[in-house]
Amino acid sequence: MTFAPSLPAHLSREDQEFLDQLISEQQDRPGMLLTVLERIQERQPEKYLPAPMLDYLARRTGIPESRIYNVVTFYALFNLKPQGRHTVCICRGTACHTRGSMRLLESVRLQLGLREDEDEGSADKLTATTPDGAVTVRTVACFGQCALAPVAEVDHHVLGHVNERALQREVEQLIR
């Protein structure tokens, strides 16, 4: 059973002001759409892009809806569905892979009861959220921490040279 909370259908006043201010600030600067989407997602507590805000963004800037949807589903950073309160991110970079990060990923999945088919999102993104919305498990191609391989990040706190036991303890605290 995947995590599917009810989503707001319309746009609050406050969101609209935030969007207007953001759009005017970023108007025809390079990377405008990326920056705007990044700010929207960062502001959202569940770190996702609510549909009403995307619709408003399309109408307000004239960027076709199809292009916005293409961008949102192309880049791994953006989420269309709310993410868990906590995130556990396993690095799948080369150094981490050679030092066994695949086993870390499997052990976290096992611990949180996430099965293989839980992963959704575009073909490459391996993100899965526990049914109660507590923890999202994601992978990233490389943290740039290769000297500490294998690396895991729990809520923006980087763990270097992590083994299964240490990771299980960290995750344990999250779900308690």
């Binding site: 600067r29 390079p30 990377g31 990326l34 920056t35 989407l37 990044e38 192309f74 880049y75 791994a76 950073l77 953006f78 990233v140 191609a141």
Partner: peptide, 10 residues
């Protein structure tokens, strides 16, 4: 110079 953050695409 302006700074743009990529969004996760190798």
């Amino acid at each position: 110079i302006s700074l743009v953050e990529g969004a996760g695409a190798f």
